[in-house]
Design a protein around this nucleic acid. Sequence first.
DNA 1: TTATATGCAAACTTTTTGCACATGC
DNA 2: GCATGTGCAAAAAGTTTGCATATAA
Lengths: 142, 142
Amino acid sequence: MKNLTNIITLLRDKNFRITPQRIAIIKYLLKTDVHPNAEEIYQVIQKDFPMISMATVYKTLDFLKNMGILHKVGTSNGKNRFEANIEKHVNMICTKCGKIEDVYEQIVLSQLENEIIKKSNYHIVSRRIEFYGYCKNCKLKL
Amino acid sequence: MKNLTNIITLLRDKNFRITPQRIAIIKYLLKTDVHPNAEEIYQVIQKDFPMISMATVYKTLDFLKNMGILHKVGTSNGKNRFEANIEKHVNMICTKCGKIEDVYEQIVLSQLENEIIKKSNYHIVSRRIEFYGYCKNCKLKL
DNA sequence: TTATATGCAAACTTTTTGCACATGC
DNA sequence: GCATGTGCAAAAAGTTTGCATATAA
């Protein structure tokens, strides 16, 4: 499990700088359970850093992605969403409102992975599992 | 299983027009096993319809999406991908040589989907399952 | 015939980039 | 002090929209 201290140590070890903007974005992404897009992250961080720019938000998110600290998840509405949780899980993406929820299903997921390894003979290092559909709220309005 | 005749009948029944551009896009999406983006669809259709515009491609894709004939899948590179063949399968992506293989695992995949539906309460319409790693050949050279 | 679809160009939205200034170490 | 990060503004990239023309039914 990743926490702020781990990440700061990681950045320090690799000689990247610990800036207040980076800390604020990391802290927010670690504590939130929604999968915010860049605009939403900007709105939140702006409360503490009124001078922050979208460019910095995007650059920081890209930097953190390259550090393996977060994942960038594409959506069909054109706005990418970001998540710091990189544990094995499934993303549920609502094709109507764009909301993303995490679902954990270790047992069947591991079973699937084992079957796939058997059939493909691949050495798997990561996975991206996304189900698209209508969330609880949106399916009521169909 | 969807085929061209079904779709033409569906459009005719709903009083939408059967245009050569629409037919060409539907035919291509039905026969391809990649998940093309708008630009790739445009390139292919352009061979037979040099006058077709991106606007028509986008309008047609949006129209077909609303008809339930295809799905629009967001990606983190900003380009949406479109798929008409919605069979359940897993994409194996080799991070070394870039090869993509389809693996079918109906039983465990259905089991996973059922568990996920139970836990999330989503109405699922499509799925994207990608495993990243080293293929048979590339893992030998590690 | 006539309502719908196409194609062009312009607009819009999200993301990226270049560069001068600021700042962490 | 110096290399790295930030913020501004402009550019790029993907998608959508308005409108005149073309066309399926």
